[in-house]
Amino acid sequence: MIKHKKVAKIGLLISAISAQWFVQADEKLAMTLNNLEPSLFAPNTVSTNQFEYGASLSPDGKKFAFVRALAQFAHSALVISNKQGDTWQTPTLLPFSGEFHDTNPYFSKDSNTFYFTSRRPVEGAAQDIFKMWQVSYDGDKFGKPELVPGKINGDHNVVYPTVHTNKDIYFSSVIKGTTGGVDLFISKFHPDGYQAPTEITELNSTASDADPEVSPDGKLLFFTSMRPGGLGHYDLHVSVKQKDGKWGEPINLGDKINSRRMDSDPILSADGNTLFFSSDKNPEVKAVNNYDELLQRQESIHNGLMNIYSVDITELNQYLRNKI
């Protein structure tokens, strides 16, 4: 009986220590998320009173591609801003964009290829489907668009594809027979063409899950989701890869980043320590007293259209990697 009591006491002690560790871990996470300080990226140059979203920073940090769109995503074109010194320059239209509905730009990790999705015509295919395209890129000039080879393109939309260092492509789509509305997928690289998409089942929910971006070391996956427990719309989340190779329980990035509006399009810098994302959050809505003030409010950056934000996530990266 005494031995059983000692075992029970030890068990209770271990449980208490474990519970305390989880509380401390949760407190540390809450503090880390509360320390995040997102800000508008390049205000009045990239982030303006127009509709912009879906960014990608070149590996050398000197070029920033993003989307300028009409309201309600009716049509969009790809633009690029160049950095001179510490200043981002007025964007210019990418040479292959402007006619068709182009979106989701992405620089490859080796800077040799530029990716995007588009509804541009493809012979024998439905014209209302976003397919993934690629153009050669030498750091200055862009080539001509070509469809990404293999089975990643099909009779489904390819939405917000990102290309990992091993050339695997992560993207979101609606494909019959999968978990939710919009789900997360991976298309594995093969020299003869990309393999058919497979669902990332451990991350998909019955709600919509979209816009995946994997950290350069492959240990973190950022995405947006409408799953329960968020702030009311699409919220940004992060998942840590577990020792068994599966993705862990998603972590909501909190109210410093997320809002009651759409928060989406997570993209990382080459070192993984800066997170870019899109949001139509409107942090300050002031009452107006006359028509001129009304026009000024409608013409301001925070007028309800999407903007692009950046945030230093160095501390968050350190916390998450301690969980691995």
Rank of each mutant, 00 (worst) to 15 (best):
R68M: 07
G143L: 11
Q296K: 15
M132K: 07
F22C: 10
I301V: 14
S215D: 09
N153E: 10
T224Y: 04
L57Y: 11
G254N: 02
S205C: 04
L94E: 07
L275W: 02
Y137I: 12
E315H: 06
A19F: 13
S279L: 04
S118Y: 01
W21F: 15
V311S: 07
P212T: 00
Y234R: 02
S279K: 02
A30Y: 01
D26Y: 10
G139P: 08
L268H: 09
A126R: 10
L295V: 15
Y170E: 08
K6F: 13
K63A: 12
A16F: 11
Y194E: 11
V122W: 04
S172Q: 04
N273A: 14
Q20Y: 14
N282A: 09
T178K: 00
D26V: 13
P91Y: 06
V158K: 08
N157R: 05
S111D: 15
L305T: 06
I169C: 03
V285S: 11
K246F: 05
F96L: 06
N303H: 05
E315W: 05
L275F: 07
L268T: 13
N35P: 07
E99Y: 05
S269T: 15
R260K: 09
N44G: 07
G181A: 04
M1T: 12
T32Y: 01
F107R: 06
Q72F: 14
G180K: 02
Q134R: 12
Y137Q: 12
I10A: 13
S15H: 06
N35Q: 11
K131P: 08
N104T: 11
I17H: 08
Y234M: 00
Y53H: 03
K243E: 14
F116S: 00
L253K: 04
I308L: 07
T103G: 00
S97M: 05
S225H: 06
T198R: 09
A196G: 08
I313H: 05
P43L: 13
V122T: 13
Y309E: 09
G180F: 04
P212V: 01
P250Q: 01
D265P: 03
K286E: 14
K141L: 10
T224A: 11
F66E: 03
D183G: 02
A69K: 01
D102C: 01
Y291T: 15
A42K: 11
P250A: 00
V135W: 07
N204Y: 07
G304S: 05
D255H: 01
Q127W: 07
K5C: 11
S173V: 04
S56V: 12
I17C: 15
P145T: 06
W133L: 08
N166M: 08
T178F: 02
D183V: 10
Q50G: 11
E37N: 13
I308N: 03
G54D: 12
D209A: 08
M262N: 10
A65W: 03
V288L: 12
V214C: 08
N112L: 15
H75W: 05
L78R: 02
N282P: 00
V163H: 09
F142P: 10
